[in-house]
Design a protein around this nucleic acid. Structure first.
Length: 493
RNA sequence: GGUUCUGUGGCCGAGUGGCUAGGCAGAGGUCUGCAAAACCUCGUACACCGGUUCGAAUCCGGUCGGAACCUCCA
C-alpha cells in the first residue's frame, strides 16, 4: 500500500449512516459496482455528476495502491414504464416511436454516453456489462430465489415475496423505510395486480404480444425485472460479497433495497459492505425535469446552446465545478457558479504549468510535507474533494510565491511536490487542461515567442502603442500575456 | 401525507460544540511605462423561534423554505 501518509481512508456508509474505516474484503483487491445509465435517452448532467463522483473514488482507490475491479452496468433491457402498461418496455417504446430496432436505440445512446464520459475524462470501468448480455445469469438468480421459496409465479411472471422474506430478514434497512407505512401509503393500482402484496416486485415479467424485447425462460417468453440485472451482474463479476456499491441517491429505494433482498435471498449473505450514494444536481435551484424545461444536457453546456448559461463551458470546467462540492451534498449549477469555477480552474492549471518549470533552491522554507498531507487527509475523509481542492489552492499560492522567488523548496521536496501535484490533479481528480493539450503547443509557443520578442523590442524603444497593440490583440484572440521578473509568458483563456 | 436529507457572507461551497476553509466577485496596497497576472491586507456569515451548555452556525425541539424517495429516474 503506497499511502504516503499512511492515513486511513474512511467512507460514509449509507447502510449504517456513519463514516467507517475502509477495509476491503480481500486486500489489495477492491470490488466496486456502480449503477450505470439506462440507454434509452441522452445522459443528463445529473447522471454525469454521479459517474464523475465515482470516477474519483475509482481513481483514488487506485492511487492508494488498491487493485480495483470497477463494474458499471449498461441497462439496455429497459425498465417497465408502469404497472398498468402490462409490460411496455421503455426501450421498446422508444424504438417504436422512432422506427428503430431496440438494439439500435441502445447502440446509439451507449455510444453517446461513452463519448460524454470520455469528454468528462471519466475512466472506463473495468467491466461494463449489459443487462441483455446476462439474461442467463438473471434467470439462474430467479431460480435460486424460487427454490428458497421467496418468490412466486403468476401467469408467467415471477414476483419477489417481500412478506416471506421479512420473516427472516429486514427489508428497508438501507432507506430507513418502515414496511407497514409503505403498505399503508400504497395507492390502489388500477386494474388487476398479480402481486400478493403491493411491495412485491417483479423478478421476471411475461412479455405481452407487442413487447419487442423478449427472451425464453422456464416461465415462458418474457424479460427480467427492474432490479435483477444489478444483483446478477455484481454477483457474477464481484462475488456474493463485495466492497463498494454506488449510485445516485434516488436509487436507494426501491432499487438498492431490492438488490439487497435479491442477493440475500439467493446467497444468504449481505452483498455489499459499503453503500455509497451521490447526491442530486439541481439547475437554478430546481430539479431537472424535461416536463418543466428545466434541463441541461452536457453537450448543451459545451456548445453554449442553451437557455441557462451565458457562454459555453468546457467539460473540464464542469468536472472541476462538480468536484468543488462534496458528492453527498446537493449541488446547484448556475451560470455564476460555473464562471467562478472556470476562473478557479484556470488558476489551478496555471499553477500546475508554473510548477513544472520551477527550479529547486538549497533549502525548503515552507512546509510542503504537511501541505500535501492535508490534501490526503481531505481525500481520506470520505473523498472530500472540495476540501482537497481548497488545500491544493494553498499550495498554488506557494507555487506562485516560489515563481516570484519569495519561497523555495530543496531539490527533494520540489521533486516530490511536482510528482504529487501532477498525480493528485491529473490522476486522482482527473483534471487536465484540455485546451492546452489539444493544441500543437510547441509550434504555438514558437509563434507567440516571436510576438513576445517584438513587443519587448517595442517596449525598449518606448513604442508603447505598438507594444500594447500586440498585447491587446493577442488578448482578443484569447491569449493573455503575463509579464514577470523572469520574462513574459502567456496563457490561453 | 410518510421517509430521508438540506438551509452558511454578494455568488458557489467546506466545516458540525470553543480555534483562518477554499474559489469567484468587491475594496486597498506592492509590482508595472500603463495594464494584466502574481503576491499582501480587508468580509466577522451560518433561515427563524425556543431549549441544553461556561460556550452553538455546529446538539435538542418547533416554525418556515428547498431537494430526493414513496411510481421508471444518477
Amino acid at each position: 500500500m503506497k499511502n504516503p501518509k499512511s492515513q486511513q481512508l474512511t467512507i460514509y456508509n449509507t447502510l449504517t449512516g456513519q463514516k467507517e474505516r475502509f477495509e476491503p474484503l480481500n486486500p489489495p483487491y477492491v470490488g466496486m459496482y456502480v449503477c450505470g445509465p439506462t440507454v434509452y435517452n441522452d445522459v443528463h448532467l445529473g447522471n454525469c455528476r454521479t459517474f464523475i463522483s465515482f470516477d474519483v473514488v475509482f481513481r483514488y482507490l487506485q492511487h492508494l495502491g488498491y487493485k480495483v475491479r470497477y463494474v458499471r452496468n449498461i441497462t439496455d433491457a429497459g425498465h417497465l414504464e408502469n404497472d398498468a402498461d402490462e409490460g411496455e418496455d421503455k426501450i421498446a417504446k422508444k424504438a417504436r416511436l422512432e422506427q428503430l430496432e431496440p438494439m439500435e436505440v441502445v447502440q446509439r445512446y451507449t455510444v453517446g454516453f461513452h463519448r460524454i464520459m470520455e469528454r468528462f475524462n471519466v475512466l472506463p470501468p473495468s467491466i461494463e456489462p449489459t443487462a441483455t448480455g446476462h439474461i442467463v445469469e438473471q434467470i439462474q438468480l430467479i431460480r435460486k430465489i424460487l427454490d428458497k421459496g421467496l418468490a412466486y409465479e403468476v401467469n408467467g411472471s415471477i414476483y419477489f415475496d417481500v412478506k416471506k422474506y421479512m420473516e427472516s430478514e429486514p427489508y428497508g434497512e438501507l432507506s430507513g423505510r418502515n414496511v407497514d407505512e409503505l403498505i399503508a401509503g400504497t395507492r390502489e393500482l388500477e386494474g388487476q395486480s398479480e402481486k400478493r402484496s403491493p411491495l412485491d416486485f417483479a423478478l421476471w415479467k411475461k412479455a405481452s404480444p407487442t413487447h419487442i424485447m423478449r427472451w425464453e425462460s422456464p416461465w415462458g417468453e418474457g424479460f427480467p425485472g427492474w432490479h435483477l440485472e444489478c444483483s446478477a451482474m455484481s454477483t457474477k463479476y464481484l462475488g456474493e460479497q463485495f466492497d463498494i456499491h454506488g449510485g445516485g441517491m434516488d436509487l436507494k429505494f426501491p432499487h438498492h433495497e431490492c438488490e439487497i433482498a435479491q442477493c440475500k435471498a439467493a446467497n444468504n449473505k449481505k452483498p455489499v459492505r459499503y453503500w455509497m450514494h451521490a447526491n442530486m444536481l439541481t439547475l437554478n435551484g430546481k430539479r431537472m425535469s424535461k416536463s418543466t424545461g428545466n434541463t441541461l444536457l452536457p453537450q448543451e453546456i459545451f456548445s453554449g446552446q442553451n437557455a441557462f448559461l451565458s457562454k459555453p463551458y468546457s467539460s473540464a470546467v464542469v468536472r472541476f465545478f462538480i468536484l468543488q462540492a462534496h458528492y453527498r451534498s446537493p449541488l446547484d449549477i448556475s451560470d455564476e457558479a460555473l464562471q467562478a469555477s472556470e476562473k478557479g480552474f484556470r488558476r489551478l492549471m496555471e499553477a500546475k504549468e508554473t510548477l513544472s518549470h520551477l527550479k529547486a533552491g538549497t533549502v525548503s522554507d515552507w512546509d510542503v510535507q504537511s501541505a500535501m498531507a492535508r490534501v490526503y487527509e481531505a481525500m481520506n475523509d470520505d473523498f472530500n474533494t472540495p476540501v482537497a481542492i481548497a488545500e491544493l489552492f494553498e499550495i498554488v499560492r506557494y507555487i506562485n510565491l516560489m515563481k516570484a522567488g519569495e519561497q523555495h523548496l530543496c531539490e527533494k521536496d520540489l521533486t516530490e511536490l511536482k510528482d504529487f501535484f501532477h498525480r493528485m490533479v491529473e490522476d486522482v481528480l482527473g483534471l487536465k487542461d484540455e485546451q492546452r493539450s489539444m493544441l500543437d503547443t510547441a509550434r504555438l509557443d514558437a509563434v507567440i515567442q516571436v510576438l513576445i520578442d517584438m513587443r519587448q523590442k517595442a517596449r525598449q524603444d518606448r513604442n508603447y502603442a505598438l507594444a500594447d497593440q500586440i498585447r491587446d490583440q493577442l488578448l482578443k484572440a484569447g491569449i493573455q500575456l503575463k509579464d514577470t521578473k523572469e520574462g513574459t509568458t502567456y496563457t490561453l483563456l
